[in-house]
Design a protein around this nucleic acid. Structure first.
Length: 400
DNA sequence: CGAGATTCATGTGAAGTATACCTTTAGGCTTAA
DNA sequence: AAGCCTAAAGGTATACTTCACATGAATCTCGTA
């Protein structure tokens, strides 16, 4: 019956994935690689909480995909496991970036109250009322300690003021039975400079920086995950290394590395390939880059799109010539008039061009042409294939 | 011929305006006691 | 009277404008050799 085996095996689904979930960003690995020191550090700071003692507030920062959230959650999970029996400790995690859930002072508090098992109307109450309610709930808590993890806290503080943090750190003096420990996580390395000195000193009693992974560490992480994610023998030699190298070049972002691998696998699958090859990594890299660009193009404002379209058109119609701000503005002006869209001032167009430069869609260098004044020299910075697709999107969205 | 002044076309910064959207609050309406 | 709802008032972020001044090399000017 060996024949049947081969027949069935050939019919069996061709998927390369055994468990795709492992490569997604919300997956929690059992073991965190190359973050031993950080995990230990966090654990040692938070350890006294098991006895119900107030620990130092902790502030963690590091770029995206360096394992901050993962490490913190790992430690807190372990803490909860050990503290479960004794009603000493309570840990709440809030991601401040989630739109419509926790991106204002009010909503963060409301979310907290909800997690602590009470309700607050989604809108309407003055903020200090919510504070009172929050304190009220805390007074009734059995636990002695609340560890509050505020992820992507920089996002929240950008829209709210740092007073919020100040209030939180000050709450402790109003509470007797329960104490709050704040663990802040931020992507922005300069975040602490932005906030108030008095908040700063109380918030970051302990600080911890997560450095980017290097290529070798990324390889370990990828290898480990791909063992679980893929069926055996699906990954060609060197794929992992290449993937890691790509991601390491972009500030050691592990999320990026995993995305790359996942997208590469999806591409390989679509090609009905039995293995993930080097070329798939390249394709995946292009696709991710391309999606990012197209996303920017698609989500920009009309004026933004119009300016981009002008640059696209200019560099297409006369590729040899250099493009300057003035050219773009003239072209843009005509276009806008024709489309019956308000014509913006040159000042603003200059800013929009600077924005395009920041986003990496174009390269713009300020040069002086002597008597012919100063201007930006603009060059398209996206591959031709992508720019054609971008053009299509723009034609569509501007009803050209 | 060369040092310094001039000039051009736009960069850059600050401050102000318009608009849309959100929060807050006060007043009025409803409901339950 | 307490609670709830709503609409006006007040706030805030965004996208833009206006005004004012800054830049820096090609070009012009003029004194000098």
């Amino acid at each position: 019956m060996v024949e049947l085996d081969t027949i069935f095996n050939s019919v069996k689904d061709r998927s390369l994935f055994k468990n795709k979930y492992v490569l997604q960003s919300n997956y929690y690995p059992e073991e965190i690689l190359h973050r031993d020191n950080e995990v230990k550090h966090i654990a040692s700071i938070l350890a006294p909480s098991l006895l119900g003692q107030k620990t130092s507030n902790l502030f963690i920062y590091g770029k995206t995909g360096t394992g901050k959230t993962l490490s913190v959650q790992y430690v807190t999970n372990e803490l909860t496991k050990r503290a479960k029996s004794s009603k000493i400790l309570r840990i709440e995690y809030i991601n401040c970036k989630l739109k419509k859930v926790a991106d204002t002072e009010y909503r963060i508090l409301a979310e907290l109250i909800k997690k602590l098992g009470s309700e607050v109307p989604p809108t309407g109450l003055p903020t200090d009322q919510v504070y009172l309610k929050f304190i009220e709930i805390l007074r009734n808590c059995e636990e002695k300690l609340l560890i509050l993890i505020l992820d992507e806290i920089d996002q929240a503080v950008k829209r709210i003021s740092s007073d919020f943090l100040y209030n939180l750190t000050r709450l402790n003096s109003e509470l007797d039975k329960i104490q709050i420990v704040i663990v802040g996580i931020s992507n922005d390395l300069k975040f602490l400079d932005m906030i108030d000195q008095r908040v700063r000193s109380s918030l970051s009693e302990e600080e911890l920086v997560f450095h980017p992974y290097n290529a070798l560490q990324l390889q370990d992480i990828l290898r480990k995950r791909s063992d679980i994610a893929f069926k055996s023998n699906c990954v060609s030699e060197g794929v992992i290394a290449k993937c890691a190298a790509f991601a390491a070049r972009e500030h050691g972002d592990s999320r990026r590395a995993l995305d790359l691998l996942r997208v590469a696998a999806e591409i390989a699958e679509r090609e009905a390939s039995t293995k993930i090859d080097m070329k798939h990594i390249d394709m995946a890299n292009n696709k991710i880059e391309r999606d990012k660009i197209l996303d920017i193009v698609e989500s920009g404002t009309k004026q933004f799109q119009l300016v981009l379209f002008s640059i696209l058109d200019l560099s297409k119609s006369r590729p040899e010539e250099k493009i300057f701000t003035g050219n773009v503005y003239n072209y843009y002006e005509n276009l806008a008039k024709r489309l019956n869209i308000d014509v913006l001032t040159q000042r603003r167009i200059g800013d929009l061009i600077a924005e395009l430069d920041m986003l990496g869609l174009i390269n713009a260098v300020v040069i002086s042409k002597g008597r012919q004044g100063r201007t930006r020299q603009i060059k398209l910075a996206i591959p031709q294939k992508v720019s054609e697709k971008a053009r299509e999107i723009l034609v569509e969205s501007l009803h050209l």
